[in-house]
Amino acid sequence: MNMHEQLQQIQQELQDQLRQIQDSGALEALRLKVLGKKGSLTQMLRSMGQLSAEERPAMGQLINKAREDMSARLDEVARRIQEAEKEARLRDEALDVTLPSSGAHQGCMHPISMVIDQVTDVLTGMGFEVVEGPEIELDHYNFELMNIPKNHPSRDAQDTFYFDENMLLRTHTSPVQARIMTTRKPPIRIICPGRVYRADEVDATHSPVFHQMEGLVIDEDVTMADLKGTLDVFAKRLYGEDIRTRFRPSFFPFTEPSAEVDLTCVACHGKGCRVCKGTGWIEVLGSGMVNPKVLEMCGIDSSRYSGFAFGVGMERIAMLRYGITDMRMLYEGDLRFLSQLRAD
């Protein structure tokens, strides 16, 4: 076999073997077998010494040409195989994307905390500052300064837990207002969220521990229309633009005039339903113009300043908002309830 034939044979064999090659390992072996140091083509180059000086350049050219040619073919197959192997890997790596996994999990704030947060957002946006105070209070701040003297029947409305004659668990967050009024000068614009206590047995609608948010504004020339305007914004921001307020005459010792404030029923939007007992209104807030007696007891000039105050039960808001029908669920900590919640 002369060298021409030998070369042709090597090329032919490579061609044949390339057709059968499936993986990059075998391809690399083939490359070595032909083009490696001990490869058949390299051997041919080495055996060029046997050729005459005239034949050598032509043969050399031929072999080099063949080497480039074969190298290109090997590369091309290599690319094909790599591509196929990548695709095979991607196929193998496919996941059942529907398979559940324990993965990421976000907890949630308590519903009361969420509504306190929402109401705070609305009211701080209107220039109210959040002020907090102690839960164990003096009778002086909780009652006396709120125009509820000792042995007054209006104490009946707020069954109180006492530690001694003067110390009690606050029955509303009003003592925080009293503390501010006795220490700051108007203008005052504050909200006081917090835990309050009344000696009520636990049932679906009562709890001895609950939460309130009270607001207080004192300035020159504050009017009852300002109160209504503020609560209108409060209602709309919290429940939607179609929600209106309705003021009803009422009595609180610390306000005069006093009003209960109803909102358009948030469940039926005023059509009448089970939640509002068919009236289209739900009772949500107590409010009024600060009684000048209270201002005077707190050392504020009632001839110069006037003000309004309002109070909202946070449980009421949370229960309406999240459709909670039993107050006990709020204080039990049962995860079957809590895990239904998400950031609101």
Partner: peptide, 21 residues
């Protein structure tokens, strides 16, 4: 009470804020 108007607070602008706690 139905005669009550609805106005927004006037007077000095006050910075609303949350407490440190």
């Amino acid at each position: 009470f139905e005669h009550l108007g609805s106005t927004l607070l006037r007077g000095e602008t006050m910075p609303g804020k949350r407490s440190a706690h």
